[in-house]
Each structure stands twice: as C-alpha cells, then as structure tokens.
Design a protein around this nucleic acid. Sequence first.
DNA 1: TTTCGTTACGTTAGTCGTAAAGATT
DNA 2: AATCTTTACGACTAACGTAACGAAA
Lengths: 299, 299
Amino acid sequence: MWETIELREIRVFLALAEELHFARTAERLGLTPSRISQSLRGLERKLGGQLLYRTSRRVSLTPLGERFRHDAGAAYQQLAAVLQDSGKPAQTLRLGMFEPCSGGSHLTEIVDAFERRHGYDVQVHQIDQGGDPLGRLRRGDVDVLAIRLPLDAPDVVVGPILSVEPRVLAVAADHRLARRDSVSIEEVADHLVTDCAGVPKTIMEAFVPLLTPGGRPMRRIDRSPVKPYELASLVARGKIVHPTVLSFDTYYGEPGIAYVPIADLPPLRSALVWRQSAENAHIPEFTRVAESILPTPTA
Amino acid sequence: MWETIELREIRVFLALAEELHFARTAERLGLTPSRISQSLRGLERKLGGQLLYRTSRRVSLTPLGERFRHDAGAAYQQLAAVLQDSGKPAQTLRLGMFEPCSGGSHLTEIVDAFERRHGYDVQVHQIDQGGDPLGRLRRGDVDVLAIRLPLDAPDVVVGPILSVEPRVLAVAADHRLARRDSVSIEEVADHLVTDCAGVPKTIMEAFVPLLTPGGRPMRRIDRSPVKPYELASLVARGKIVHPTVLSFDTYYGEPGIAYVPIADLPPLRSALVWRQSAENAHIPEFTRVAESILPTPTA
DNA sequence: TTTCGTTACGTTAGTCGTAAAGATT
DNA sequence: AATCTTTACGACTAACGTAACGAAA
C-alpha cells in the first residue's frame, strides 16, 4: 500500500505536524481544510495507522505520528534538496583519488587553480585500496579519478597525464641492495614482494610484473589488504622489497628505508580519467586547467 | 516547480533509468509506454532539464540524468524504507545516555533483559556532553534517556530511578585533602572546580552548587567543552578538584586520583526519562523490566 | 455561539489506456 | 518491415473547492 503514497500527502502531513491546525495548514499550502483532512486520511490509510489525534479543538501527534514526522521529515528534506538543485548544472566536481601519491605532485595545485578560477568547489574523495578501483567512478560516486595507468576499461576516458615517475626499489637501509646505484628487475625476483588481492591484473602487472624479462616469476606474499604504513614497515624491517616510485618516500617515509633506481622498468604514469557516458559539465574545464599547469609531457 | 514533483514520477524515472527501455519499464510498473513517456516529460519539465536521450532505438541517461539517478535514487530509497516500516509499530527502542556512568550499574543488565524477553532491539545512542541534554530527546532522536536528576522540564516524564550514588570529591593523590575520611562542600570552595557552559543550570546546580551552604561562591574555571578524560587529567595533576560520584573512577579512573566522601551533599540520582507526548509503545514494558531488576528504592 | 474538523457533492485536472503516427535501424 | 517512442484522444479516477454539518469549548 505504501507504494502509492505521494509526496503531496507527505508535504501535507509535515506541514500539519508543524501547525497542528488544519485551517492554517490549508492556508499555508494554498488548499482548503477539507483537502487537508482527506489527504491525511488517505496517508493514514496507506500507512496503516493513525498519525494525528484530532478533535475539533485540539490536534496532536500520535506516537506513530511523532516517529513518522521525524523519519519522513528527514528523508523528505534530503529528497527535496536533490530535487531543488537537480535543475541547475552540477556545481561540484567530485574527484576520487587513492593514496595521496597517485595524483602526482601537481594535483592539489590543479584543484586550487580550478576552484579559484571558477566559483565551483571540488570534493576530494579518498578511495580505499582493494577491490575494483573504478567501482566508485562507475557507480557515479565521483566524476573524475586520479589513478595509475594503464587501465583496460573501454568505458573510461583517459585524460591528461598527471605524473610520470621513474621506478625505484624500496628496501631496508641495511639491505644488501641498499647501497647500489641501480638494480635490475631481474634482481628483485630474488626477494619477496607484496601481492594485493582484488586489484585488477592490468594495474598490478604494470606496478610489479608477474614475470621478469628473463622469465622468472616474482615471489609474492599475499598480505592483503596491506595498508600503506604496514607496507612501509615490512620494507623497513627487511621482510620484503617494494618496487614503487620516489613519492612513496614523501608520503609514507620511514627512516629505515633506502630507494634504489630500477633500471629496466618503464616510468609509472598516472592520469585523470572519467566515464565516457557521464561527463560532468565541468570536466572539460577541469582538464583544461590541469593541462595548463602540468609540464608538457615529453614524448 | 520542483515542489509539485510526485513520487510517482520519480518511481517511473528510476525504473526507466534501470531498464533504459520504455516498454519494459511500463510492463514492470503495470503501466503503458505512453504513460511512461508522459511521466518522464513531466518530470523533466519540472526539473528544468533533460534526463534521458531517447530515439526510437536507444535510450540513455544524460549527465543530468546520471546525477539525478544517483542522488534521487539514494534519497528515494531512504524515504521508501521509512514508508515501508512506518506502518508497523516501533520495533526498536532508542535509548540515549551520556557518559557510561550516567545510567548506573544496572543499565546494561536492563537492556539485556529487555532484549531477551522481547524480540525487539535497543539502540544505545551515546550523547555528547554540552548543550541541552534533552535536545536529542525532544527532537525525537531517542525514545528514552538515562540522565541525572533533577530535571526542570514539564514536558518530560521521570521514570524509574536508575542509580543513587553518594558524592565523593576527586582530588589528586598528593592533594592535601586526599587522606581525609570526609570533606565538607564548604572546604571544596577553597579550590577550583570546572564549569561546563551549555549545561542547564538545574543540572549544574545539582552536580556542583553555585554557592556553599555558608554562602561562599564556588570557584569555577571554564574549560568547556571539557572531555571526561581531560577532566580526570586536570584532577590528577592537581589543577582542580571535582565533586562527582564513585563510578567516575570505574570509567575514567586515572592512577593518581583519590576519592574522599563529601559529607554534606545529597546523593546524586539518575533516572529513565521520556517525553510525555511521544510514548514509544515499548516504554511501559521497558520501565517494567527496569523496575523488576533495580533494587527497590529506599525512601 | 463561535471555532474547528469532517462529510457531501459537484467540478476540474491529470492519470491512464487505446490506437494511430512518427522515428530509427 | 520491425521495433520502439511519441502524440492524440477519450474514459475515468482522484484532487480540489464550496457548502453544509457536527463536535467541542
């Protein structure tokens, strides 16, 4: 029965619950007392319970009415807010990012510039690692995403490159590789690295290849979900080595970690991406701002 | 314009946004394709923007449609949940309490017994100190409240007494009052006590009188909002003394605090209270359970 | 007697279905 | 030609106002 309840009836009830007076409620809504009476009766019938005690002299809420006023009032306000500003074009851009480093060093600068240049604000959403990184984007929780490449997702547009970072190997300071000028990925295979379940293979493969160029498998330990700080701790204690990028140090730096360039891994890139189907009106402008700030990419 | 939008139209849109097909949507809702078309057109007109791109071959969401589906979908689900179980009598009792100690030692026992004896569950809401303690109750966020007496609120019913605790003075272990068998409130006026802004005078006055029986003012320092642990720390460091009850030690006990009975303050009582106007159907039963468990009060 | 809420009843707006038209592949 | 959305139009439900009624102070 509740499936046929209309907002009209809820609006009448909420006004009535405030006024506690049929005539005033009618006037406020531009209706007549009779209609208020009928509306309320209809709502009560559909809900299956009385909302108001009423005599010709006093109107008051029943316990059910109290509860309904509270709960439905909150829900109605939320819906009303949506209806109100759904007409206007989007005023906010919701930007999703993972660990702070995934956006590159210029991202905060870009966000600031965009907010300053236009009136709009940017909501930055932190996204948990693990699971499908594109989930929040596909579900429409965020409009754009700062994420590492490559992606294998035809429904997603890859925009400007945010960062290109050379690869380094994070090792414990007293590790035997720590004092080297550079290492080969081939040598990394002599040690344990982490494996994060749930992360799509394309991304995982790009971050740490499954096989070395020489064909040896990487020795992964599955400690997922591994939180970044846990990871830094594992490295510092010499339990694992971690192929990463230098900004890892900036964000999770532990004292006991050294970074050695990896000679034979291509730099890791991250980019702004968004859904092809649901371009927020401000995405083009946002990418334009991003491109004006980012250093011109070298081919 | 949005003020005349009806749930019917939103239901149609949400179904349509899933199906992306007028005929299937119509069938699913027990309507005809024409009505779907008209409903949607009406909604788009009232919102002031197009929600769906549609040719006779393909139906897809516009950016506005994407956003509206996401936002309105969430809001609608919340409202639908309210409408669904507003018919049935309340299944939960929302119990508000302040610091753990305000409920007395039997409160968890009472809640357990009530949940076991009936099928219903009790939601325990922790309420922040500061501001009007009855606010959440009056706003309908909770059904019953465990709170210290006395209250000066005619709209609130005071139910069973939960606890009667003798007054003690919390002082630093090396304080000169620490080794006394008992102190008088008159002596407390020689030291600093806290003052919490926002707490109604009736309660504050009962907890720490403004004047001693001898007519001297208490020396209060306003450090509000004072969190309980901060308070314990202030006491342990000898900055203040704190007239309280013994269970303070149980919950916030710091090693460096001693408790000295206050001879001339009446015991502090706490009780279950609720709004007169909005009795949840389970309150009588809950108080009955409470009374069966609480020791009979001594006059 | 006045002030409300409710009921009765007639009018109108808008929901809904049927059928035909228009559009796209 | 087939499939799908839209428009046209008529039927009917229900939203609404007016006016009369009934209960409470």
